[in-house]
Design a protein around this nucleic acid. Sequence first.
DNA 1: ATGGCTTCATAGTGAAGA
Length: 256
Amino acid sequence: MKIATWNVNSLKVRLQHLQEWLVANPIDVVCLQETKQQDADFPQADLQVAGYYSAFSGQKTYNGVAILSRTPLSDVQMGIPNFADEQKRVIAATINGVRVVCVYIPNGQSLDSDKYQYKLKWLAALHDWLAEEIKRYPKLVLLGDFNIAPEDRDLYDPEGWAGNVLVSAPERTAFQGLLQLGLRDSFRLFEQAAKSYSWWDYRMMAFRRNMGLRIDHILISEQLALHCISCVIDKTPRKLERPSDHTPVVAEIQNP
DNA sequence: ATGGCTTCATAGTGAAGA
């Protein structure tokens, strides 16, 4: 099973990129973030033509998540249970016996922002929910836009970013807390090129200069990690005209 | 240099992203 995460930064704008990418890449399960589309506008028919079932939870302007799958999805769950949240940031489903949890973790804006407090509360709620979920589903994948660069090697300028949102100690501690539930960062299971990132600012010619951050992740439970044979960042779509600022991350799990 | 782009909701600019 090949499983991917991609923050498309508007599915309406990026639908063609997604379609072309799916033609070129035989991915079984694709998790999307920042679709920025109400459910009524979700391009379900187009994706069906491309060979995918879909489950989605969207809203106007902001947020929005979706799971695409070549095989049917069951037990679809939207949002974190018992955590009231207007923002559409979570969708989960079971696919071929694997629990897939797609997340768009809040950005946080800045350390002195209310949005940062929201991010930390959100991460705590995610942690508590997944502690139960992973017991129910030993085969679990948690993937999406985490808005956290876990280590200094995951960003281009650790000194300049020190203490900033996306790299602050409480955010990194929360990330480690997720790993301690029995999840592995699939990207780090393998040898990777230095300066590997998944997001680059639209400004400053950041992509060309590789001024990026690795904030999109695929975390997999120990049981699945035994069968994980690769995890790669695909920079190809970031080179297209009018790209998303994020690029897909793809993991392959053999006979999960 | 807290900007630099891009998107969305607007119908001028402003918010938000990361």
